[in-house]
């Protein structure tokens, strides 16, 4: 089915079932947050897991997606789907320029360039009038879907977010299992050999980068409309750190890892919030545990134990 292996297909069905059942048990706004971060983490994982590119600046695309979606929904009164799409296109547009600059270098230099560019975006957001500086863009309305379907109730919004997430998830899956994805895998395995076969590897990396930033922008835009707010937190590099942690905890290069990682990390933030700064301490401990004890992440270790490609 769709190029899923049997185990992945089962995983996918379970995931969809959980998405359908969960709002009956858990708070929908919490779940929407999880899904937005899950999409963001999947977008990040597309680069690190399947191309071997470690970006350090994905907060920029996510955050700008937030701002643009929030601003267009509030000031232009665009409908939800257009605002989110514009958020994604903003991410992709930035990604085109930043990727073009960063991909000329590899490894740690690539990571540093993406970080530097993302920091520039952050300072731009502090200064630019349209972002509202420290206040952010607040009280963003949730315009109706396609201008007709009201999203005022959280459940209605939840189904939209679930739909966006699933589309993004399937798009990534298709990208990985496409002729393009084959070349990406070849580049990850042995870039010199891919070049010697006649592939201009930089072009492929660039397209993958732009796709990833597009999805990061979509994730950001969706989150902004769920919470009705876009702030500096969304473009700050710590946001990127969070998504790295999610992918790592779930398992880099796995299909479901980033989703599980997003669930775990967001749950910790929400349910341990009463302990204040202990949340960050716990996160730190989990990060260390991950690196020391289970490097493949939760899903990665599970997959290895079951000898399945999850």
């Amino acid at each position: 089915m769709l190029g899923f292996t049997r185990a992945q297909a089962i995983g996918f069905v379970v995931m969809v079932a959980v998405i359908i059942i969960a709002p009956g048990v858990l708070y929908p706004v919490f779940l929407m947050k999880v899904l937005c971060f899950a999409l963001f983490a999947c977008a990040f994982n597309l680069l690190i897991g399947y191309v071997g590119l470690l970006s350090f600046g994905h907060a920029a695309y996510f955050g700008m997606g937030c701002y643009v979606a929030a601003w267009t929904a509030k000031n232009w009164g665009l409908s939800v789907e257009l605002s989110i799409l514009l958020g994604g296109l903003t991410g992709a547009g930035l990604g085109m320029v930043f990727g073009w600059l960063a991909i000329r270098r590899s490894g740690i230099y690539f990571a540093m360039i993406t970080l530097a560019l993302a920091q520039m975006v952050y300072f731009f957001c502090i200064q630019a009038p349209f972002t509202g500086g420290e206040d952010g863009i607040q009280q963003v309305p949730r315009p109706p879907l396609f201008g007709a379907v009201s999203l005022q109730s959280d459940m209605a919004m939840y189904w939209l977010v679930a739909g966006v997430f699933l589309l993004g998830f399937l798009l990534i899956h298709r990208i990985v299992h496409s002729p393009f994805g084959q070349v990406l895998k070849a580049i990850r395995e042995n870039e010199t050999r891919a070049t010697s076969l006649g592939y201009r590897t930089d072009d492929y990396k660039w397209v993958a980068f732009v796709l990833s930033t597009f999805l990061a922008g979509i994730a950001g835009g969706t989150k902004a409309l769920v919470f009705g707010i876009a702030t500096l937190t969304d473009v700050h590099w710590t946001m990127h750190g969070e998504v790295v942690l999610m992918s790592l905890v779930g398992g880099l290069g796995t299909v479901f890892g980033p989703v599980v990682g997003a669930l775990v990390l967001t749950a910790m933030e929400n349910y341990l919030a009463e302990f204040g700064s202990w949340v960050t301490v716990t996160q730190g401990v989990i990060f260390v545990l991950c690196v020391v004890a289970f490097r493949r992440g939760l899903i990665g270790e599970l997959g290895a134990a079951l000898k399945l490609n999850l």
């Binding site: 190029g3 298709r174 496409s178 072009d203």
Partner: peptide, 10 residues
């Protein structure tokens, strides 16, 4: 060019 990321590897 194999930039067709929307197609199945089939």
């Amino acid at each position: 060019g194999s930039f067709d990321f929307w197609r199945s590897e089939e």
